[in-house]
Nucleic acid binder design. Structure first.
Length: 446
RNA sequence: GCCGGGAUAGGGUAGUGGUCAUCCUGAGGGACUGUGGAUCCCUCGAGCUGGGUUCGAAUCCCGGUCCCGGCCCCA
């Protein structure tokens, strides 16, 4: 028995590898047009980087190991933490904003299912240091365009944590993360019960998360006003508490290091306005809260059809993450795209072109090699390495789907003109090498 | 971690507790050392793994591995 692939990993045969490269290239082009520059980080990092960001709970899904020097390392389970680590270490003093993109494989010890693997690829961006509404609108519009470039139509849901967190500020701190979780999990009944229990039903949270679409914004404004009026009647006790949290800096983001919640509905309103200016089709949805504590402003998720249970292809928002890794607090907006899920449904238009087959008689092999070398300057070219005769080479070229063959034998060498054969029609012409290059070049321009 | 369905040449498949395990496709060679994917011939190539039942297991039973789908989770 041959050795199998590890569970949850995949081999990509030439056709699929080509498709993935083409899709990546299409999205990369969008990124370049928007001025994002690619960065890359190591495949493995110190384990601590990930437990710091996500808490100890993620340990069981992390591929971690000790290296020969006894260091605790981990195959990266995601890319946001490494990117922020890199930013803090090397880019903090670079001019703002920083527009960064990344693409890389990540590893999680999970049960594989449709659209979920143990080695998977994430593509994402971070816009670091920009002003919130502008950054948020840009990043969401960018995600939209990137998906569009590979023919994926997604449903974009945009929420705003400034409001949700402001409401939660009126609730005891110990309940907040549980409530966020219930919202995220859409556990409506449990949430309702919980809010009644702590006498918080009047705050409008339930109503808010059920609102969808454009009307949601107006109603959300009203809820926000109510909150503000209440607040002006007496300062809340939570302000001091938030300040002390900010000072601790290095706690895990999952274990209660909640970022300060500023209401700023006007900012969210501007994000919405700008998104419309970008021509993005989206739904306002306050139910989107993205489980984690470090998100602070707008948050969004994109869902696609045809993916089974794992239908979210993109998620992101604005967060305060730099300080978690020892940097100065800077808000950044970003998202991650599940590349593998996108590949399940991507429409990749680029087609692979079989190369030109240079077919030769055995007596002119040396000359054929020289001609192939020249042809390759301009055209993808292959020549026989199996020791086949002319007929067999042609057969192989046909089987490989070649559109063109260049035939060379003694008489071509003597005359200095090669035979160009159109494989579909069978017509042949006697041409110089330069003429052949000129004739075929257009065929191979993608 | 849980539930369900699977695993037979490189790919796709058939079948039976008992001779040499089907067929299609593929790959390599030949008929064909200057012209094609056709045809014909030859060759290569398989019952996931470990145990059990049995005179005999690829077939029946159990464990494991991996695949597919779902739950949980999803940074």
């Amino acid at each position: 028995m041959t050795i199998q692939r590890p569970r949850g990993t995949r081999d990509f045969l030439p056709d699929e590898a080509w498709r993935r490269t083409a899709a990546r290239r299409a999205m990369q082009e969008v990124l370049e047009r928007w001025g994002y520059r690619e960065i890359a980080t190591p495949t493995f990092e110190h384990l601590e980087l990930f437990t710091q960001k996500c808490g100890e709970a993620v340990l069981e899904e992390i591929y971690s190991f000790k290296d020969k020097g006894g260091r605790d390392l981990a195959l990266r389970p995601e890319l946001t933490a490494p990117v922020m680590r890199m930013y803090v270490a090397e880019l903090q003093n670079a001019p703002k904003p920083q527009r960064l993109s990344y693409f890389g494989n990540c590893f999680r010890y999970e049960r594989p299912q449709k659209g979920r693997f143990r080695e998977f690829w994430q593509l994402g961006v971070e816009l670091i240091g920009g002003a919130k509404p502008d950054s948020e609108a840009e990043v969401i519009a960018l995600a939209d365009r990137m998906l569009e470039s590979v023919g994926v139509k997604g449903e974009i849901h945009v929420g705003y944590l400034g409001l949700v967190r402001s409401i939660l500020d009126r609730i005891g701190a110990e309940r907040r993360s549980a409530i966020m979780r219930m919202i995220d999990k859409k556990e409506r009944d449990a949430l309702k019960e919980c809010l009644e229990e702590i006498d918080a039903s009047h705050l409008g949270l339930l109503e808010l998360i059920d609102l969808k679409g454009r009307e949601a914004l107006g109603r959300a404004m009203e809820i926000a006003n109510d909150l503000r009026n209440e607040e002006s009647m007496g300062p809340t006790a939570f302000v001091a508490e938030e300040a002390s949290h900010a000072g601790t800096g290095r706690a895990s983001a999952r274990t209660g290091r909640s970022v300060s919640a500023e209401l700023r509905m006007d900012e969210f309103g501007r994000t919405v306005e700008l998104l419309e200016a970008y021509g993005v089709d989206f739904t306002i949805d306050f139910e989107i809260v993205r489980g984690l504590e470090y998100y602070s402003g707008a948050v969004f998720e994109i869902y696609a059809q045809g993916l089974g249970a794992q239908r979210q292809v993109c998620g992101g928002g604005t967060y305060e993450l730099a300080s978690l890794f020892g940097g100065k607090e800077t808000s950044s907006t970003g998202f991650g795209l599940g590349f593998d899920r996108i590949m399940e449904i991507a429409q990749v238009e680029e087609r692979w072109q079989p190369p030109v087959f240079l077919i030769y008689t055995p007596d002119v092999k040396v000359e054929a090699v020289k001609i192939a070398t020249e042809l390759r300057e301009a055209l993808p070219t292959v020549l026989d390495v199996m020791g086949r005769g002319l007929g067999a080479q042609l057969k192989a070229a046909a089987a490989a789907g070649a559109k063109f063959a260049v035939i060379v034998g003694r008489s071509e060498i003597d005359s200095g003109r090669l035979t160009l054969r159109d494989m579909a029609s069978g017509t042949q012409e006697s041409l110089t090498l330069a003429e052949i290059v000129q004739r075929l070049r257009a065929q191979f321009q993608n």
